[in-house]
């Protein structure tokens, strides 16, 4: 089996459905197709260069950011706009087809996750896999997330940064 697509925590394997492995190129295609994407950014990306790259991606594709855990503070201090939610709160809203989205413009159709603690992120992705057929999830962590619709593979830092750079440029 391809090591890159074994869930980072190998036992989060949940059933027959597995995330699609994406490259920066396929991720880009998903972003292009998306009408109302959202980025959910967790507290694990507090350090550059990943933080800067994630923010660049959000800017390039014009994606609003939701910050989870206490990530808001880091972003706020760097003058980066985000809206703070608990990861379970934002997932709860995303699973409601009638929710108006972060800006009241309608429910999102693509949600990017980066920097959320792996296992709680995986649980949130499971929620969306089961209860949010109206949107796709894409994870940009360096960990393969089998509960997402699409995920980067397991990678070392160098490769990950290259992936993110490609998506940001």
């Amino acid at each position: 089996m391809n090591e890159r697509v074994i869930p980072w925590q190998p036992t989060v394997i949940a059933g027959p459905k597995q995330a699609l492995l994406v490259t920066p190129e396929t991720a880009e295609m998903m972003l292009k197709k998306a009408k109302r994407p959202l980025m959910v950014m967790g507290p694990l990306v507090k350090d550059s260069p990943v933080l800067s790259l994630a923010v660049l991606i959000a800017e390039k594709w014009n994606i609003p950011i939701v910050s989870t855990g206490d990530m808001f503070k880091t972003l706020n201090e760097a003058d980066i706009k985000s809206k703070p939610y608990g990861v379970v709160e934002i997932v709860n809203l995303l699973k409601d087809p009638d929710w108006g989205g972060i800006n009241g413009e309608g429910q999102h159709d693509l949600v990017l996750f980066i920097g959320v603690i792996y296992y709680i992120g995986s649980q949130g992705l499971s929620t969306l896999k089961h209860f949010a057929p109206h949107l796709k999830t894409l994870t940009l962590c360096k960990f393969f997330h089998s509960n997402a619709d699409a995920s980067f593979p397991n990678m070392k830092d160098e490769e990950w940064i290259k992936y993110l750079e490609k998506l940001a440029e």
């Binding site: 190998p10 036992t11 989060v12």
Partner: peptide, 12 residues
């Protein structure tokens, strides 16, 4: 192959 009964997560 796993146990999923506690929040340590699934153990292989």
């Amino acid at each position: 192959d796993m146990c999923c009964l506690c929040t340590f997560g699934k153990c292989d």
